[in-house]
């Protein structure tokens, strides 16, 4: 894990290389995170992967997060790893919700796909698209992966109902007539 000054150094160098790419940084529980501009996320990831001295060349995980009450609603989180120094760095692309910006209710947030940088991201990005409706531009095969292809809705968004059925117990039998139907 890069420590707090180390994270600031990375952020500073990134800002030199790609201005306005890093929006914020935070370091808590010994875990470092860069919050980046979604338009430049590919530049940031490529820089982190290829720059000597950084070499975060292993993508452990990629997942979506829905921070619903917060302002940039969605986050696409990249868990990067340097295996030589055993350092992990989290990169989060903060994605606003286009539906809230008046782009129509069906507008989906979009971000560049990082499959070319990290081939492992293919399934991960499909999963994020499946669950959160985040479109990855340039993804080779962006379809639903876990849910049926005809499914409507983005189930892991916070405003999507959890579904299921309420549990009915046998002692409701006399109280709720007809529950067996």
């Amino acid at each position: 894990m890069p420590d707090s000054p180390g994270l600031e150094l990375i952020a500073g160098e990134l800002r030199d290389a790609h201005p306005d790419s890093v929006l914020a940084t935070y370091h808590e529980h010994d875990q470092a995170c860069l919050i980046v501009d979604p338009e430049q996320v590919l530049d940031v990831l490529r820089w982190l992967r290829d720059t000597p001295g950084q070499r975060y060349d292993f993508l452990s995980s990629l997942h979506g997060v829905d921070y619903l009450p917060a302002a940039p609603r969605f986050g696409v989180v990249y868990e990067l790893l340097n295996r030589d120094r055993v350092e992990r760095l989290r990169v989060r692309a903060a994605l606003p919700d286009p539906a809230a910006n008046g782009d129509g209710a069906d507008a989906l947030p979009a971000i560049d796909s990082c499959v070319e940088l990290f081939p492992t991201a293919e399934f991960h990005e499909r999963e994020v698209y499946d669950f959160f409706g985040i479109v990855f531009r340039g993804h080779p095969d962006l379809r639903r992966i876990l849910l049926p292809e005809v499914y409507v809705g983005w189930p892991h968004r916070r405003d999507f109902p959890i579904g299921g059925e309420p549990v009915i117990f046998t002692h409701d039998e006399r109280i709720v007539p007809g529950w067996t139907e």
Partner: peptide
Amino acid sequence: SSGGMFANYAVVQ
């Protein structure tokens, strides 16, 4: 038998 603990959108109850 009943959906069990997974009362959610993905599992047939």
